[in-house]
């Protein structure tokens, strides 16, 4: 049982053989269906708002907000976690997944206080998304300014 470099390498192979892989095909079907349904709900809200006569821009904002509200509510009820277990990326990738990633730490860490718990940890998952999203947008903006 020497943990030499060679044995470590051999062990990595053993681990790979002993570890079951995820059922990727089944997971993809579930992700496809749930992700597709969430987008259809978004489409339904969009179409409905358009009929009410909202502008293109406002429609987008309202659609996102409604989806974000539904996901935050489902997170509070403990339903979004269950959906995520079933759907994987199907419920992570839509904007509802972003909402879930903000609401779940907010709820989980409120016991540690409204400032040091909820306040400090609310972006524990979504913080990097905002950081790198905004950074990328700044770079895009600068490049656009010089190239246009």
């Amino acid at each position: 049982m020497e943990s030499s470099a060679k044995n470590k390498e051999l062990y990595q192979d053993m681990v790979k053989k002993a570890s079951p892989n995820s059922h990727i095909f089944k997971n993809c079907i579930k992700a496809f269906v749930v992700g597709g349904i969430i987008c259809c709900i978004g489409q339904f809200i969009t179409n409905y708002l358009k009929e009410l006569g909202l502008t293109q821009n406002d429609t987008g904002i309202y659609t996102s907000s409604v989806l974000i509200f539904i996901a935050a509510l489902m997170t509070g009820l403990g339903l979004y976690g269950k959906l995520g277990k079933f759907a994987g990326a199907g419920s992570i990738v839509p904007i509802t997944g972003f909402s879930n990633s903000v609401a779940s730490p907010a709820i989980e860490f409120k016991k540690e206080g409204f400032v040091t718990g909820l306040g400090a940890k609310i972006f524990i998952v979504a913080g990097p998304v905002i950081l790198y999203g905004i950074l990328t947008s700044v770079i895009v903006g600068i490049i656009y300014y010089f190239l246009k």
Binding site: S22, N27, G81, K85, N100, A103, S104, E108
Partner: peptide, 17 residues
């Protein structure tokens, strides 16, 4: 889970290992 992984309400899948 709260200490080592993610908040309980976060919708993630657990690997088979």
């Amino acid at each position: 889970e709260k200490q080592f992984r993610f908040p309980l309400g976060l919708g993630t899948q657990r690997p088979l290992t």
